[in-house]
Simulated scan of single mutants.
Amino acid sequence: MRSITGPLLKSIAFVVVTVLATGVLAVVIANGSSGGGSSYVALFSDATSLNVGDDVRMAGVRIGTVTDVTIQDHRTARVGLSVEPDVRLARTVRAILRYRNLVGQRYVALDQGSGSPADALPVGSTIGLDRTQPALDLTVLFNGFQPLFTALSPQDVNSLSYEIIQVFQGEGGSVQTLVSQTATFTQTLASKDQVIGQVIDNLNTVLTTVNARSEQLSAMLVTLQQLTSGLAADRAQIGSAISSIGSLTTSVGGLVQDSRAPLRSSIDGLGAVSGTLSTTPQLDQFLGTLPVKLDALGRTTSYGSWMNFYLCSVTGRIPVPQGYYGGVGAKPVEARCRG
């Protein structure tokens, strides 16, 4: 029995210590607070990436947590703060959002300002927009360093970015550290001076070529501007013309669709006529006598813009008088009609 009691007690003690250590670790990770605190409200123009449970710090020391982040008046971020009861905030206190790391986590930094904690800010008070400051806009900041970052390795970029954030937030070791980091990266750039020099040479060549043709380039730009202005002035007519073209296309498409069957029939008939004419002897005879006929026709019309005809004979039948259906007519007597 004694041999079991010892190991059992040791196991229970190990489990208890492990559970307590896990609980403490969970509280630390969750940014939990060990007790109640004094509540305040801070208004920010931008509280992007600030979450409930993030730290509230003063002089770098954690004194509370963020309890609430909501929107107010559709334009202002309302941030609830819980500060340890033994920390007194001056009426001139300022709340500043700062980056905790490059991952994007943030915290609220409190600065007492020029006031004294003896003139304390009442619990539950609101720190207005005139005494708050949003986090540094990393997009604008890093866009300025973009040419430098393109020539650095990812590890160097991360290191330099962190130093830049720390310095601009007033938390870095000093500007000297930033300058030291920049010097190291500058050496990296210096090792690539041949590539940079080649790029500059190529750019100079391009600029020289463009400069030598400045007049043509200027004329092209002026002409392009005039063309653009003309098109802009005629935009109504152009739009109307495009609409009309669309209507015309639709109409032509309908016309072709409607005439497709008759056109096919006409083409088939033309083929049949061509085949018939090619095998008819009368056509050859007509074409053979056509010059003689045209010559005679030319003589006939040579007197003016009219044609002279000589009537050789007329035949017919008339029903007058009633019951008479005799023939009438004239026999040819002239020699020209006997030929």
Rank of each mutant, 00 (worst) to 15 (best):
T186M: 13
I200C: 06
D55G: 03
G6E: 14
V79N: 02
G316D: 00
D201P: 01
D86M: 03
S218E: 11
N211C: 02
T250L: 07
P262A: 06
Q133K: 08
S229A: 15
A233M: 08
S34N: 05
S114V: 12
N202T: 09
T223E: 13
A261W: 06
L287H: 06
Q176A: 15
Q72F: 11
V175C: 05
S240A: 14
V333Y: 08
I63Q: 05
V28Y: 11
Q187F: 10
S247C: 00
T76G: 04
I238T: 06
A21P: 08
L152C: 09
M58H: 00
Y303F: 10
G298V: 00
K10Q: 14
I164F: 07
S116Y: 06
V292R: 07
G269N: 15
S229F: 11
V195W: 06
T279G: 10
S214Y: 10
R57V: 09
G246V: 07
A151Y: 10
D268S: 12
S125G: 01
D268A: 13
A236Q: 14
R57F: 05
I29N: 07
S161M: 13
L224Y: 11
D73N: 11
A335Y: 06
L227H: 05
T132K: 00
G23M: 10
E215S: 15
T301G: 09
S191F: 12
A330S: 15
L129W: 06
I71E: 15
T150Y: 07
T92L: 01
R336Q: 11
Q72Y: 11
G269D: 15
S191E: 14
V175L: 12
G275M: 04
A42W: 01
E171G: 00
T209F: 12
G115C: 03
V175R: 12
L217K: 09
A261K: 12
R338V: 03
V79F: 04
D295M: 00
E171H: 02
V252M: 12
Q112D: 04
M58C: 08
I196M: 13
R317W: 10
S247V: 12
T280E: 09
L20H: 09
L148H: 04
P122S: 02
T22P: 03
Q146L: 13
R299Q: 12
G275P: 01
V61L: 06
S161P: 05
L89P: 00
Q198L: 14
R75Q: 09
S174Y: 06
N51C: 11
G104F: 07
A30E: 01
S82M: 05
T188L: 11
S153P: 02
V17I: 13
G197L: 14
N158L: 14
A47D: 02
S174P: 10
T279C: 03
I29C: 08
E334M: 08
Q216L: 15
V328A: 03
S159A: 11
F142V: 07
L283N: 05
L287T: 00
V83Q: 00
E215G: 13
G23E: 07
I164D: 01
V222K: 14
I165S: 00
C337I: 07
A296T: 11
L227A: 02
S274F: 03
L294A: 13
Q216H: 11
D258R: 15
L50I: 08
L203H: 01
V103P: 04
T67A: 01
D284L: 04
A59R: 12
